[in-house]
Amino acid sequence: MSDRDDNPIDERTDKAPDAEEAGTGRRGFLAGMAGLVGATMLASCSWQEFFQQQFTRLTKEEVQQTVERLKAEYRAKYGMDFVVGTEAPIDGTLFAYALDIQRCIGCRQCVYGCVQENNLSRDPQIQYIRVLRFKDGNMDLEQSTIYYDPEEVPEKGYYYMPVQCQHCANAPCTKVCPVRATWTEPDGIVVVDYNWCIGCRYCMAACPYMGRWFNYTDPKIPIDQINPVTHYLGNRPRMRNVVEKCTFCIQRVRVGKYPMCVEVCPVGARKFGNLLDPDSEINRIIQTKRVFRLKEELNTQPKFYYFFAT
């Protein structure tokens, strides 16, 4: 394989004299095929991209080269300078999320804040957050809807429950990946290496929260709405045939900021923090409020807590 690809240009230049000499001989045929395969690969992606290792196996230099290559690629595609961060997890952090379902008014501002921050495809539409609307007193997920569209929210007699990736401590999606393109980072964020993903969608089948999304086509984003501040494992522009998911805005939380959905929530229903810090708001919530986790009986151990503030 590597023989063929190291020098695809040479193979192609070899092809012409071979064909003249040997005509339709075996050698000519093989050379032609090799040239064809090489040309196809070159057309679809660069050989560095094709032979790039999984992210956790890259050395520092390789990471740097990859980042440079991606930057050049994005500049050619979008005509602007991107930041492709590779910030490592901060020591002593384990991220968790809490959401006050008594306070959520279902305005969907988190949904669109997330779309903007994470360069999500507008067409076909991908939204990491689904806001479920339930009738008061009902907690049956199958009787909820995400397509409600009233004049004003909150509506009387309903309550809202946004659902996104729950960043499980015992994540079923990472176990089923046949190539280990998805894994849990030491700070508890479940990430995907888009360049290593083969697009088999096993993880989507395994996830009980529908927290993963597949790029059936190349994502389309208006050029003026691109967010150029990205992270390798987070919101860098994705390609066709890869799975993507919420990363707690890894490009923001690894530098100390709050995730975008926390930042845009108008009622402050969303809380984020470090589980290992005893004074963090997330720990105070778990200690003092009634909390529950979605589909706890599946033993996925989500780090996403729903709570009642009163």
Binding site: I105, R108, V111, Y112, D149, E152, V153, P154, V267
Partner: peptide, 13 residues
């Protein structure tokens, strides 16, 4: 009392 606000558009079916 917190004033009701207009929600953002629902997702495509």
């Amino acid at each position: 009392r917190y004033k009701p606000i207009e929600p953002m558009p629902p997702p495509q079916k």
